[in-house]
């Protein structure tokens, strides 16, 4: 059984801000039924770009629900500029930490938030830059490089835990290994 913190359990059993948000003017969606978790984030943002309210709908395990709940609590009242600096670690820290294998749940929160902000600002998130590495979970080499650098990831397992990349069919594991090696080589 996972060693969830009391905060994770609490946010799972009593999630804050669940459901569609009336008057939402920004939405960010990430994940899918296929990959086992998904988050739809709703924001109500005023003309000064302040987040007045936030809510979520989540399909996934306890840590996915808890991460979503924590995210909405963290960003309520922030400006979009402030919110855009929220990272997956902030979400994980808010919950007193997540098991390493569940870090991707917090990454999902960060990713939905990015998309919601872009959605509000009318910015198209275009085709992701970089080369597709993991088809199962739609992860590019640039994303892997970023995650490896930011979190000092050392193994393909670490990458899978953070980004899910490589956790599906496993065909890209070798490619992920190469990406990690290339980051190491460049220092």
């Amino acid at each position: 059984m996972w060693d969830y913190t009391d905060a994770v359990k609490d946010h799972f059993l009593k999630p804050r801000n669940v459901g569609e948000l009336e008057g939402a003017n920004a939405i960010g969606e990430t994940g899918s039924l296929n990959c086992g978790d998904a988050l739809k984030l709703y924001l109500k943002v005023n003309k000064n770009e302040r987040i007045l309210d936030a809510s979520f709908m989540t399909f996934g395990c306890a840590s996915a629900v808890a991460s979503s709940s924590a995210l909405t609590e963290i960003i309520k009242g922030m400006t979009l500029d402030e919110a855009s600096k929220v990272t997956n670690d902030d979400i994980s820290d808010y919950l007193g930490g997540l098991p390493k294998e569940k870090m991707h749940c917090s990454v999902m929160g960060q990713s939905a938030l990015k998309k919601a902000i872009a959605n509000f600002r009318g910015v198209q998130i275009l085709e992701k830059p970089g080369e597709m590495v993991c088809e199962c979970f739609d992860v590019t080499d640039l994303e892997i490089i970023d995650a490896v650098k930011a979190n000092d990831l050392k193994t393909t397992e670490d990458v899978t835990n953070y980004l899910k990349a490589g956790g599906g069919c496993g065909k890209c594991l070798e490619r992920i290994e190469q990406v990690i090696e290339s980051v190491k080589a460049k220092g």
Partner: peptide, 22 residues
């Protein structure tokens, strides 16, 4: 999702298992 179901059943003292990855 299965893990969520199991953890909620666990609160009722019900032990089952899931075919889910999580």
């Amino acid at each position: 999702e299965g893990e969520s179901i199991l953890l909620m059943l666990d609160r009722e003292g019900i032990c089952a298992s899931s075919g889910s990855a999580c």
